[in-house]
């Protein structure tokens, strides 16, 4: 997931986008989940309006679609921050201090898991293993994995994301060298 492009809610543009997604995918069997994934990837999150549109286009009850959305943790019905921080709490990261990382992040960002900071910059999530266990503990900021992170270095790790947002908003995540993270 790259940074959230949650613009144009309920606009004509969004309707057209959903139409295109549904049209291109609806013919495959079991199309609902791929459609929802594509919709969320383009819109950032699945609003009630988006789900209603999909429901109409697929001629499928809203309740059924909502049931699928609420079942899978990949889907979100709330707008996310510009950067989603996911702290890995897989077993390897857990025994190497993932929990302490999460606690520290909650303190720094002043939010709980699943919430977004007021400035809409960071959302905090928990991950279950990114497959980088050899480098535990790890956290992901959007698509970028940061390895062997220490709680004391978190503020320094986040600083470039904050400052980058202050100067100019671009879609590129700032590149951070490994040393910064350690």
């Amino acid at each position: 997931m790259t940074s959230t492009p949650a613009l144009h809610q309920n606009s004509a543009e969004q309707q057209e986008l959903l139409h295109n997604i549904v049209d291109s995918l609806k013919d495959q069997e079991g199309a609902l989940i791929p459609i929802l994934q594509a919709a969320q990837d383009s819109l950032g999150f699945l609003s009630t309006e988006s789900l209603k549109t999909i429901s109409k286009l697929l001629n499928m009850p809203y309740s059924e679609i909502s049931g699928v959305v609420s079942f899978y943790s990949y889907f979100t019905t709330m707008p996310r921050g510009r950067y989603t921080i996911r702290v890995c709490l897989g077993t390897a990261c857990y025994v190497r201090g993932g929990k302490q990382l999460l606690e520290e992040l909650k303190k720094i960002l002043q939010i709980e898991v699943g919430e977004t900071t007021e400035d809409k910059l960071f959302s905090l999530e928990v991950g279950r293993c990114f497959g980088a266990c050899g480098l535990a503990p790890v956290l992901m900021i959007n698509d970028e994995i940061h390895q062997r992170v220490k709680p004391t270095k978190l503020a320094a790790l986040l600083a470039p994301y904050k400052s980058e947002n202050d100067s100019e908003a671009t879609d590129e995540s700032p590149k951070i060298s490994q040393e910064d993270a350690q």
């Binding site: 709490l89 897989g90 077993t91 390897a92 857990y94 279950r128 293993c129 497959g131 980088a132 266990c133």
Partner: peptide
């Protein structure tokens, strides 16, 4: 759908 936390054989 390798979901066990701490396992990444299938991914690799």
């Amino acid at each position: 759908d390798e979901g066990d936390p701490g396992a990444y054989m299938d991914r690799s």
